[in-house]
Amino acid sequence: MTLDKTATFVDRDLRGARFNRSTLAGAVMRGVDVSGAILRLPQPFHPLGQPDAEYAAAGYDTSIFATDQPTFTAVRELRAERQAMMRDFLATVTPDLLAESRPAAWSPEHQQSVLRCLHVIFDEEWAHLRFALRDIDAQR
């Protein structure tokens, strides 16, 4: 299934769940494990990312995030960029790099291996794909 087909479900209620731009913008937030924990970019968040309600309640700075709802196209393009970032990393990763320790993306006071960061990303991506496909299939 391509994202173009998925676009027909933007802002629709799918069995009580909303598949919309926010769903994909949340996926952009998950990219912080790649951009922050693994690649150690100085600003791992993108303005189009949409943190959940607990993010601000935990005291994190929300000023970098856009306040307007992003367009579906803009979020898709950003999501593609984040996926390319992951592909580029995986194309060059070495066993030594996988064993390196990094501050955890969401709790930098804790250390975890780069391999563990990848496990988190893969687990979340798999779960979100399963839910999206389940809900889209239910609408057919």
Rank of each mutant, 00 (worst) to 15 (best):
79 R>W: 15
11 D>Y: 06
60 Y>S: 05
10 V>G: 00
30 R>I: 07
119 H>Y: 11
48 L>V: 11
138 A>D: 12
21 R>T: 14
89 F>E: 05
104 A>T: 04
104 A>Y: 10
14 L>Q: 09
24 L>V: 15
109 E>K: 08
14 L>V: 14
48 L>F: 03
132 A>G: 03
13 D>V: 08
58 A>G: 00
87 R>N: 02
120 V>F: 15
59 G>Y: 12
122 F>G: 05
11 D>S: 07
100 E>Y: 01
55 Y>H: 09
47 P>W: 02
36 G>M: 04
106 W>R: 07
22 S>L: 07
113 S>L: 03
83 Q>K: 02
10 V>H: 05
79 R>L: 13
119 H>T: 09
58 A>P: 00
88 D>E: 12
40 R>L: 07
11 D>F: 06
58 A>L: 08
120 V>P: 01
5 K>G: 06
63 S>K: 10
122 F>M: 12
41 L>K: 14
77 E>M: 02
34 V>P: 00
36 G>T: 03
31 G>A: 10
2 T>A: 08
93 V>F: 12
69 Q>V: 12
24 L>G: 00
3 L>V: 14
131 F>N: 07
98 L>W: 08
80 A>T: 11
22 S>D: 05
135 D>W: 13
71 T>W: 14
62 T>L: 09
13 D>N: 12
83 Q>V: 05
1 M>G: 09
20 N>R: 02
87 R>L: 07
87 R>D: 08
41 L>C: 02
68 D>A: 09
115 L>E: 09
11 D>T: 05
97 L>G: 00
40 R>G: 02
52 D>I: 09
85 M>I: 03
99 A>I: 02
133 L>K: 14
17 A>L: 07
81 E>F: 04
54 E>C: 00
20 N>P: 01
133 L>W: 13
74 A>S: 10
90 L>Q: 09
107 S>T: 07
39 L>M: 12
123 D>S: 11
99 A>M: 01
112 Q>D: 00
128 H>N: 13
139 Q>M: 15
109 E>I: 06
70 P>E: 07
71 T>K: 11
71 T>Q: 10
15 R>I: 09
20 N>T: 03
46 H>M: 01
128 H>I: 06
21 R>H: 01
28 V>F: 03
45 F>H: 07
78 L>C: 04
34 V>S: 01
54 E>N: 02
80 A>P: 00
18 R>Y: 04
136 I>W: 15
61 D>W: 11
77 E>H: 03
88 D>K: 12
77 E>Q: 08
65 F>Q: 03
114 V>L: 04
115 L>H: 09
130 R>Q: 14
29 M>S: 00
125 E>I: 15
57 A>E: 13
100 E>H: 06
131 F>V: 12
108 P>W: 07
104 A>H: 13
110 H>V: 01
121 I>N: 06
73 T>E: 14
111 Q>K: 03
43 Q>D: 06
65 F>N: 02
56 A>K: 10
23 T>C: 01
53 A>S: 04
108 P>T: 04
14 L>E: 09
24 L>A: 02
78 L>T: 08
116 R>H: 10
73 T>W: 05
12 R>I: 08
19 F>G: 01
32 V>H: 08
56 A>P: 00
33 D>L: 10
